[in-house]
Design a protein around this nucleic acid. Sequence first.
DNA 1: GTCTATATGTGGATAGAC
DNA 2: GTCTATCCACATATAGAC
Lengths: 190, 190
Amino acid sequence: MPSRTRDKRSRLVDAAIKLVHRRGFHRTTLAELADDARVPLGNVYYYFKTKEAVGEALIERYMSEYEAMLSAWDAEPDPKARLGAFIQTTVDRKDIIAQSGCPIGSLSSELNKDGGHLADCTSRLFAEQLAWAEQQFRLLGNSKSVAYGHAVHLLSAIEGASLLTHSFGDPKYVVQESQRLRAWIRDLGE
Amino acid sequence: MPSRTRDKRSRLVDAAIKLVHRRGFHRTTLAELADDARVPLGNVYYYFKTKEAVGEALIERYMSEYEAMLSAWDAEPDPKARLGAFIQTTVDRKDIIAQSGCPIGSLSSELNKDGGHLADCTSRLFAEQLAWAEQQFRLLGNSKSVAYGHAVHLLSAIEGASLLTHSFGDPKYVVQESQRLRAWIRDLGE
DNA sequence: GTCTATATGTGGATAGAC
DNA sequence: GTCTATCCACATATAGAC
């Protein structure tokens, strides 16, 4: 695939990440996508067979972005610091979450109402996060089932607080809930 | 307003509750609504000026349903029992949550991407729940800010677990998180 | 109040020239 | 590979008879 071609395809995915987060998948039109990526509408179909294919590429992108973040967190010295870095990522994005919600959470909520296979793709993103967090809690000496419970609790609280932050358009909910989660992790195993 | 008229309008709102939860607001068409309520399409506009007006009625309905649940919970003897009843409501709905998510959460997530005033209506539902829960925590002897933090934590965890349950199509997340929340409340103030 | 037929706008997708 | 023009399906909304 030529590099110019990669470029346009990549720009379209960039646009999808931005616009789908802001307006949702179904309400984002291919015309808007093309416009934002400075690609003529008809040409979009050279890169993606259908709109659904754009959705797949979008989720792929999130998947690789997540891999990058995971590497960054794994650079932390110990599990508690890694979990802290995970939480901090949400706090860092508090303003964008207030505007448009958690990108994964709102996408998952939307696509799971269609019954299509795009829904399964988004849940894989959550599954990866759960598996990573479970691993950290296991390293803290917890049994598999306890570690899993902790991971579910962590992700639930973050996603729920993101939903409230989005609903009220106020970052304070993720900030407050993050503090609580940090204190919880700090005191674990004492 | 004649009773037959009330009937049809009410049936349309019933249909909206069901279909919007299942498919989302934007993807639910007025034709589907009319069909489900056994009302001819054109007649919908006698009861609602626009689709947005259907959305308002839908949220009104949720608001009054919530009032009814609140009364039920308030019948419990003490704050911990009331909070337990609140949590139990989510567990009771675990299967429908696995299918279509939390009705309020997914509606809020969807409508907050439009910037319209329907979004503000949904956040009022969350605000009511937060205020009620805060009140219960205050009755347990907590300061206003601590009680508010607890309320945010409770609602966040429930909404987040509902999101995971919906995403994976598996009730276990709300069940597990509810157990954890119940234990947390049981041990509060010890 | 009720219902049929239809106007109007929009969005995904395609045809086909270049 | 690129881009214009357009098809077609569908959804909101309205007109107007009954």
